[in-house]
């Protein structure tokens, strides 16, 4: 046997480009994270301290108390808009939103891609142009319709009017078009009808795409502010994003604003979307880049 020993005498030279890359990345993440850290710091301080000194570099002892207040204390008249309640509402909105948009988008795309509809192309472009009409543009008619249907202050009133999604339809359409045609034909010969093909073949194939859409749509639904503000007037229906605003409104009164509580709620409102993105990250990238067929 020949004894081979490799001694590393030369140290690897410092690669300046790598350092620079990291510096840029670190600066970027600090830029994004610092405001959150400052907000987090204020949640540990008594409200009076914050109003006197603003954000500081020390960590106080009020976190537990603020957390208590944030999660279970209500600020309105009815006592129903606790943090937990608002969080539940946000989850219902986010999930309902994502689920509704995915189901509707997939079915619309399925019709557009796999059925010989006479005006499929026109229909697709009509759907697509609704991207140019965001909620803000059509908010009054939308509100009127929901009101006439008696859906104010209901979950379906919050969710249903917004689940028609050009984005989801578009993405699923592109995805379905990339599914080999032989698969449809093989399924037809195998005796799978339209519904069977959709459920047995297309939905499982779209898994990654569904995950990607779920992230986008959940975060979008969770972060909705304008629509819930319009549709919900009962405190038990408030979502987090809308409810925080309610708490900070006290700023205009004479009382000491509850900085700690509202800031903690703001942090809590950020956590689920971030968690979902982190959890589904690999799926997300797969869904948008790779075609797993």
């Amino acid at each position: 046997m020949v004894d081979i020993s490799v001694t590393r005498t030369a140290r690897r030279p410092i690669r300046w480009t790598v350092l620079l890359d990291h510096a840029v990345l670190i600066a970027g993440s600090l830029f994004m994270l610092l405001p959150l850290l400052i907000v987090l710091q204020t949640t540990t301080m008594p409200d009076t301290d914050i109003i006197q000194h603003g954000p500081q570099l020390k960590i106080g002892d009020q976190f537990d108390e603020n957390l208590q207040k944030a999660m279970v204390q209500a600020s309105g008249f009815s006592g129903e808009n606790t943090g937990l309640r608002m969080m539940l509402n946000s989850f219902i909105l986010g999930l309902g939103f994502a689920f509704g948009k995915i189901v509707l988008g997939m079915m619309a795309a399925y019709a557009l891609v796999y059925f010989r509809l006479r005006f499929a192309t026109i229909a697709f472009w009509l759907i697509f142009t609704t991207l140019l009409l965001p909620l803000e543009v059509r908010i009054l008619p939308s509100y009127k319709v929901v009101q006439n249907l008696g859906m104010l202050n209901t979950y379906h009133g919050l969710i249903v009017p917004l689940i028609a999604s050009a984005t989801a339809t578009f993405f699923f359409r592109q995805f379905f078009r990339s599914v080999p045609e032989e698969l449809v034909e093989a399924a037809r010969i195998d005796g799978a009808g339209p519904v069977k093909f959709f459920v047995d073949i297309l939905v499982p194939l779209s898994q990654t795409m569904i995950a990607a859409m779920f992230i986008i749509m959940f975060v979008y639904g969770w972060n909705q502010y304008l629509w819930p503000t319009m549709i919900t007037t009962e405190e038990s229906m408030y979502t987090l994003v809308r409810g925080i605003k309610q708490i900070t409104q006290v700023l205009e009164g004479a009382a000491v604003p509850e900085f700690g509580r509202s800031n903690l709620l703001a942090i809590i409102a950020v956590v689920p979307p971030v968690a979902i993105v982190i959890f589904f990250q690999s799926w997300f990238v797969k869904g948008l880049t790779e075609s797993d067929k």
């Binding site: 080999p180 032989e182 698969l183 399924a187 010969i189 195998d190 005796g191 047995d200 194939l205 797993d292």
Partner: peptide, 20 residues
Amino acid sequence: TDPADRDIAMVFQNYALYPH
């Protein structure tokens, strides 16, 4: 007649297996 009812089976060039 629908392909499923013609009592035929087909083998495709790219196999057309269900990947999942």
